[in-house]
Simulated assay, not measured.
Amino acid sequence: MTTIIDGNEIADRIRADVAERARRLNDEGVTPGLATVLMSDDGGSKTYVSMKQRACEETGIEGIHHEIDPGEPAEVLFDRIDRLNEDPAVHGILVQMPVPDHVDTRTVLERIDPMKDVDGFHPENVGRLVAGNARYKPCTPHGVQKILAACDVDTEGKDAVVVGRSDIVGKPMANLFVQRDQGGNATVTVCHSRTADLAAKTREADVVVAAAGVPEMIDGEMLSDGVTVIDVGITRVEADTEKGYELVGDVDFESAKEKASAITPVPGGVGPLTIAMLMYNTVKAASLQSGVPVDLP
């Protein structure tokens, strides 16, 4: 019997824990603050930002939103980040990606104060993660760890295959799996577009995390019986529906669920955890910056 993992249910529990910690900070005179910055006309980016701001309202975090015309020079964005770095009411800063082509993404990430980098992408925070002393774990990989823990999937001594090597998901996911820590201690294989015979690798896995951004690239024939499948991918594809499209993951769900002991659907799997862990990191940032301790689970 395959377990279809309900990401919304897991995320709701985490957000309730985060809201309780935010209330404790409020009792000590500290209101966690998250600033989102949007420099794009992309409809998807606007939707993601609005979802994050709504999550702030629901968890007792002060959401501060800034919009910058995508035609403005890069320095306008950098100046805005500098001001947010200096604002004591702002504990976390998130610049919604992608930014316009004339803005260097790496410079954006490096401009954010690493103490306020609640995405966990600043080089200092990446280095701390690799060294096994993470300040903020990147939201999606951390969310995957929370899903596995909620489903009682112990990664210690297991073979974990991560399909995808992005800085946002693939690389940090592999680093978390390999750490000497809860949710780690796995033997990790990272696969990507240059991997020869991907199916041979995924069939050996106890846990597969698909994060390559290629729709339905992994099917049931590429999996072993009893595997846990976490599908991070989400792509809009044309379909004969009222909207004219449907959302699909990197995994062919129907065939994969015949092999998997547990699997995340798309949508409704990993996505809700990404936002929940952003709230988690923001409350942690407020605690670290204020010196008021909270015991985040």
Results as ranks from 00 to 15, higher is better:
Q53C: 02
V126K: 13
R80G: 15
D113H: 14
R165C: 07
V118E: 01
A262H: 07
V162C: 03
A35D: 10
V251N: 02
P32M: 01
A212C: 09
C56P: 02
I230P: 05
M97C: 06
E75P: 15
V126C: 15
L109D: 14
K116G: 04
G120E: 05
D117Q: 04
V266G: 02
E58H: 12
E246M: 12
Q182A: 15
I263D: 00
D27A: 07
V214T: 06
P100M: 03
I4C: 05
A276I: 11
M115G: 13
Q145T: 15
L109F: 12
M1L: 11
V118N: 06
V118H: 13
V270H: 01
K201G: 01
E67I: 04
V18I: 15
R236C: 11
P88M: 12
D219K: 04
T274R: 07
L77P: 13
A210E: 00
T105Q: 13
E156W: 11
P123C: 02
D295F: 09
D113M: 07
T155G: 11
R135H: 08
P215E: 02
V99T: 07
P98G: 05
R111C: 07
I61G: 06
V76L: 08
N133V: 11
D17V: 13
T274L: 03
D12F: 06
L223E: 08
L94E: 10
R15G: 08
V251M: 00
